[in-house]
Design a binder for these strands. Structure first.
Lengths: 229, 229
DNA sequence: TAATCCATCGGTGTATACAATCCTGCGTCC
DNA sequence: GGACGCAGGATTGTATACACCGATGGATTA
């Protein structure tokens, strides 16, 4: 919680987590260069641990490593965006169904707290935090289903989705998806697995259709993005 | 192919690939310690790149990193084994269906060559190589479906499956699954997506049921567990 | 004037040195 | 004789030094 770089664990996992947080908050925007020395100075560690953190983030497709060029915040392509949501569509609905059969009262309370925090963040204008909480909700469902392996995969896909949303979000209405989470929670509380599965499926489809994924040559960001805005 | 450590690319990815190969071939068995210096000497690289390779393998759950203790070949638990195949059951059947609609003649030829190589490896008694080819077959299907993200996830799950099979294989009959791959190939060639989906589903179920996953850890994680009861 | 070449420099890739931690074996004490 | 404790060795964690690559900018030449 402290922002004092000297007072905390300086492991590579910590650095990776803080960088990921910054990416999710859009303080680091896609395409931005991550200089190893700078990051090291900021977090009070050497390049050795910075490199380990960057490698971990590269595994999760949050940064792209170009040999002899350095690390850059990832810029998922339109195709990649579709693929990520395709994978989520295969994993999450059935997992939500499984979760419904195993949801405990404690789980429901935790999810409800999650939604409350999400609303609060939205009201406070902290869209980055809201997005992160929204993603956590999905991961939590996989954990309730007691599928830790799937939860881990979903966690990675959710993280990538955050980047995708940062790049391709178009819907002017606020993140209304919180309503979908409310519905999901009710389905889980009612142990209605079929409903939970359907809700999750349409929820993911809803997010996907809220993106602007026209075939725009979103790849040549190297030059276009530099000159356009 | 060369085993001369000086004649080839000494990047961490290469070291990771060769270690993974050794794990799949069961030359490195679950639980084995991977000393950083030894690995470095063997491949002619410094500990820096060995550590990067080990971190990559840890990310794929092929090795387990214990802080201040070192790296060990992973020993997936029974629960983890079930979870891996649960994830595969969600991803692969539907992906096989998609692949059926996109399979080209070149794809069919490549898959057929794959199966031939698999049979040859089996006949030659190279079960490790056969297992690896068998896994590649599954990954190839995801690539035919043009789902690179799913292909990557499946690749990781397949790698873990190889470890799981090494630990929990019980069926005395030879790896008869090659027949399942034959059937799958025919379904793809016939562009029968529904059949491909069904075949993949039952194929995965068949592998899972061929494992000995009785609830108590048949492979004790520690000596204590082995000697206590 | 414009294009090409080369030198310099910032930054990454790798190796090595140092620090911290854990395991092991021996000695001592009860 | 056994158990506890301490010290030595070995191995991992981290920092730093050096090597190599690529980018940038100026100078030279057509």
């Amino acid at each position: 919680m402290s922002s004092d770089p000297d007072s905390q664990d300086r492991s590579s996992a910590t650095v990776a987590a803080r960088l990921a947080e910054a990416i999710h908050d859009h303080r680091l925007i896609p395409g931005m260069k991550l200089n190893e020395d700078e990051v090291g100075v900021i977090y009070g560690v050497s390049r050795t641990v910075v490199r380990a953190a960057l490698q971990e983030l590269a595994h999760n497709h949050l940064v792209e490593l170009r040999r002899n060029r350095g690390a850059f915040v990832a810029q998922p392509s339109v195709k990649e965006a579709r693929e990520v949501f395709e994978a989520r569509a295969l994993l999450e609905p059935r997992t939500a169904r499984s979760a419904a059969a195993r949801t405990t009262e404690a789980d429901i309370a935790a999810l409800r707290a999650h939604i409350v925090a999400e609303h609060a963040a939205l009201d406070a204008g902290a869209t980055g935090r809201a997005l992160q909480l929204s993603g956590q909700f999905h991961i939590e469902i996989a954990r309730i289903a007691d599928q830790l392996t799937i939860a881990e995969i979903v966690a990675q896909l959710v993280a990538r989705s955050s980047l995708i949303i940062a790049l391709y979000w178009q819907r002017r209405t606020a993140l209304c998806e919180s309503h979908a989470h409310d519905q999901l929670l009710r389905a889980l509380a009612a142990r209605d697995g079929a409903l939970a599965e359907d809700l999750m499926k349409s929820h993911l489809l809803d997010i996907l259709t809220s993106l602007d994924l026209r075939d725009q040559s979103s790849q040549p960001r190297s030059l276009e993005e530099a000159l356009r805005p």
